[in-house]
Design a binder for these strands. Structure first.
Length: 306
DNA sequence: AATAGGCACAACCGCCACACT
DNA sequence: CAGTGTGGCGGTTGTGCCTAT
């Protein structure tokens, strides 16, 4: 709350980056590497907030970024991962080489959200009711009008107002715990996470050819795995027995949340050594298509859209 | 041809966790 | 252990372009 902004905003540029700024930032990072975002702008000769620089680099300038043309495979993967992880864009992005959390987030909000709604046929009623999840709706509520409105809205006061009338907050079925995850973006292509359904174990390994043999779980993947274990829950409408088909680890993975809903923790999905979406997808597919699990995912995904 | 509305995406903001002192 | 700084994340906003009227 009372904390000062990450940088004094006086005299700093805001808004779209110019080619010159991009060049300066790129040049500096190529020479000195990432990090030290706070002091980077000054050193690089940029009149930008460090945060802004970081964002620009991470989401736009990094050389390994793929832009646009989300393939159907990626599309599908995003949907599935979102059903597992919720709005954990960075985690999802971490498993889609070359994609950024921002891009995925935008893609989800503009394409997939709609798509999911349509697919699940929850549309009509929900639509009117208030797909409001706050974001998308507000936006489409009238762009131009908002342009003016939004300026007024800038202050917290109004925000509180919004909260007030916005009210009955959509029932959030899945509320991932806000756990910090170490940066994966630069590692994602280097690590692998393999779920072995036979021995009920998961492992991660370096992607380098020479390391493919000895699978060692990287800290990053271990973290994700743990994350998944902790947070990846599928809501089940109570129609499944406590242990029905979910004994991936040979131990009881189910639990009951505060609301009395039975949830099942699933082991983390898998990633692929060679970074091919195909293989990655196959692995997910296997996991996700286990009959009961698929059913639960569907209902769970549906619940997300309510 | 003008304009209003929608879409897509870049960028910003606020919050939080972790690291450091 | 507490306080502070920094990096990172998700939500939200701003704005240019496109399309329909």
């Amino acid at each position: 709350m009372g904390r000062a902004p990450c940088c004094s905003k006086v005299g700093l540029h805001k808004g779209p980056w110019t080619p010159r700024e991009d060049a300066l930032l790129t040049k500096y990072i190529q020479a000195h590497g990432e990090g030290q975002w706070k002091s980077l702008p000054k050193k690089a000769g940029l009149l930008r907030c460090g945060k802004s620089c970081r964002l620009r680099w991470m989401n736009y300038l990094r050389p390994d970024i793929k832009r646009g043309n989300i393939t159907p495979e990626e599309d599908d993967l995003i949907i599935r991962m979102h059903s597992l992880l919720g709005n954990r864009w960075s985690l999802i992005a971490g498993r889609l080489p070359g994609r950024t959390d921002n891009e995925i987030k935008n893609y989800w909000n503009t394409h997939l959200c709609k798509k999911m709604r349509n697919q699940l046929g929850t549309d009509q009623e929900e639509e009117e009711e208030e797909p409001s999840s706050g974001n998308k709706k507000k936006k489409t509520n009238g762009k131009k009008k908002n342009k003016q409105k939004k300026k007024d809205k800038k202050n917290k006061a109004t925000k509180d107002d919004d909260d007030d009338d916005e009210e009955p907050q959509k029932t959030k079925v899945y509320l991932p715990k806000p756990i910090r995850v170490k940066p994966l973006t630069l590692l994602r292509s280097d690590s692998t996470f393999t779920f072995d359904s036979n021995n009920n174990s998961a492992a991660a390994s370096s992607s380098s050819q020479e390391n493919n043999d000895n699978k060692v779980e990287s800290p990053e993947d271990a973290e994700i795995k743990e994350e998944m274990m902790n947070n990846m829950v599928c809501e089940v409408g109570g129609n499944l027995g406590e242990n029905d088909g979910f004994d991936f680890f040979g131990e009881d993975q189910d639990m009951v949340n505060e609301s009395g809903v039975v949830e099942y923790c699933q082991p983390y999905f898998t990633t692929d050594d060679h970074g091919t979406l195909e293989k990655l997808y196959d692995e997910y597919f296997q996991l996700l298509n286990m009959e009961d699990y698929q059913y639960d995912l569907d209902s769970f995904a549906e619940s997300l859209l309510v």
